[in-house]
Design a binder for these strands. Structure first.
Lengths: 346, 346
DNA sequence: ATCGATTCTGAAAACGTTTACAGTATTCAG
DNA sequence: CTGAATACTGTAAACGTTTTCAGAATCGAT
């Protein structure tokens, strides 16, 4: 591999000149240097540069699961912004596990200049872990504690859940079930509470049997739906006296997929027997027997916003006048398809 | 950030001893050093180490689209193997574009020790591009030219396509359509030819109107299916004289999703009017109105195989006795669900 | 021509490691 | 206790950059 010394020798200048010309400064023998560089196929050594500058021009992006299309799009958005700035990106999945996340960060921290993360856990230990990195950090989608101390990008979960509730109410539903994610997460809590609060404001109470709370996973989604079915909340004899629910809100896409799996297996007809709505769009949502109505998020835009915040912070890192912490909230939208209808016999 | 010098000073030894102890050699004052390291929270500087050793302990993984669940699983497999070996991984998507891929490689090449890639193009220029990197490379799923000169992992496309054809034949289909990917790719060609050859061997000819060839993309899948519909190949009046196809083979998952979208929009009933089978499993395949029968690939295992090949090559890189080039072919399997049935009126 | 101001140049130091080399302490056999 | 063998140690060089500093070339004005 050719080094800057080889280039300098071939061009008949000092290595300083080569370095300067590469940095865009004015140099008398620019043409000779350019020639030498292309003759030798010289590429600056990243490690040496990183060592000298104390910068790696690389950032770590950690998400719970890169195979989730929401996260995939998010990462794409982050990439788009950083690539143009000459940054490399290391993407890794934490599998929603604090331990995996912690290990990843340990491995990555001294190879990157900053971290964009959708934390697996929102607890204090995550906050400490991130603070200990002593690098610019931007949180996405979830927070860590009440005073995270990092920039944050998320969406208006409250409005989204409210929109879902309003929509179901407007269709005439009064007996509604909900499958929610972990309540120790911001999206879990916000969506859950806003949904229930909106119903309550309309005088609709959700019985505790129709509330399922657990992991944001496909597996839990399936189990929760199975329970609802077994309890007779869903798909019970369609007699007039049925006390089951006529609509179901699921708080994210992976849980929704699991729930749909269970509902399908049980032969529940959507939307005839049950109206179905969930947070987060997903691949093929529109292909299902009843294309699923969803609250969709601007994942790419979230990525852009996160990257912008991080770039700003990288720029000022180390200096005394840090820009103030920023919390960017992006809007969500209701995408109406065909999985919701008026309740039967209403 | 604490350096090795700080540790050495605190422990009262030379930096060489610290380095040696970190490398696992025997050192008299190991305990004092360990203590100093943990007191200072010392972490070796990756750039300095990379500079000195000429190694980065990082590999690049380039796939066409990380959001495709097959590639996501593949990457997961690669990660699993490399993580345990202390390697970092940079994942990037080429979007099936040679230009993007070329740029990515340019940016990444001097930050990594090796490259695992599903090349966007299989042509000569990709081969040259990769060869010019002068690093260990493993190709996955696709090749580059007839004499790639790199290790290669893929699956038995021929058997897979043959299995699909045999299955459709066994159900009694004789008028069969095919949507294939680009024929300048190994999977595109192998699947296409094996499928047609198997049919031909059974005396079944596929008319050219029922053959669509294009990009491995959702968009092309949709367009191809739309064309088939418009041409009256699919969903024509179900009279006895209909000359349309009764079964459709699609050569990968993204095209299949596009085709399903179009079929669904046109109200084609699967498998009543049309049997549907495709290469590659996909998320939610089992949730569709008619769960889709697919040829599935062992993506994780492919990732493992690729990683193993690459590790071996990294180990011997630079030495004179390179291990011989290896081409690993993994088996595929037919996953029967409910999208195929006997043809109508048969 | 001369001078000062300006622009460019190269030598050398630094970044944080690993490792060859030469040297010092320890161990062991006699 | 001696000497040889062994086990460890520290110094210093190297990896390929960027950047400071002092000095050299160029330029413009007189």
């Amino acid at each position: 591999m050719a080094t800057i010394h080889d280039v300098a020798k071939l061009a008949g200048v000092s290595i300083a000149s080569v370095s300067r010309m590469l940095a865009g400064e004015n140099v008398r023998s620019a043409e000779a240097i350019r020639q030498a560089i292309s003759d030798l196929g010289y590429r600056p050594n990243a490690s040496a540069r990183g060592l000298r500058l104390g910068k790696h021009h690389c950032i770590a992006v950690i998400v719970p699961d890169i195979a989730n299309p929401y996260f995939a799009a998010l990462v794409r958005g982050i990439e788009e912004r950083f690539m143009t700035q000459g940054f490399r990106i290391i993407v890794a999945s934490s599998d929603e596990q604090f331990s995996a996340e912690s290990e990843l960060l340990g491995n990555l921290v001294d190879a990157v200049d900053a971290i964009a993360i959708v934390p697996a856990e929102e607890g204090e230990r995550t906050r400490r872990l991130l603070a200990a990195l002593n690098k610019p950090v931007v949180l996405i989608d979830r927070s860590v504690g009440d005073e995270p101390g990092f920039d944050l990008v998320n969406v208006d979960n409250t409005s989204g859940a409210k929109a879902a509730a309003d929509y179901l109410l407007s269709l005439g539903h009064r007996r509604i079930g909900i499958i929610s994610g972990r309540q120790d997460t911001v999206p879990g809590r916000a969506r859950h509470q806003a949904f229930l609060a909106t119903l309550a404001a309309a005088g609709v109470d959700v019985p505790v049997e129709a509330i399922k709370i657990g992991e944001f996973s496909r597996d839990f989604g399936r189990r929760a739906a199975q329970e609802l079915i077994q309890q007779g909340q869903i798909g019970a004899a369609p007699g007039a006296g049925a006390a089951g629910i006529t609509a179901l809100f699921v708080a994210n896409n992976t849980m929704a997929q699991g729930a749909l799996l269970a509902l399908h297996a049980a032969g529940v007809s959507i939307p005839r027997e049950l109206s179905f709505i969930c947070f987060d769009d997903f691949d093929l949502a529109e292909l299902l027997p009843a294309p699923v109505t969803v609250i969709s998020r601007p994942a790419i835009a979230e990525g852009h916003a996160a990257a912008d915040l991080l770039l700003r912070r990288i720029e000022h890192f180390g200096s005394t006048n840090q820009p103030p912490l920023e919390h960017k909230v992006l809007p969500v939208s209701l995408t109406i398809r065909q999985s919701c209808a008026a309740p039967p016999f209403n």
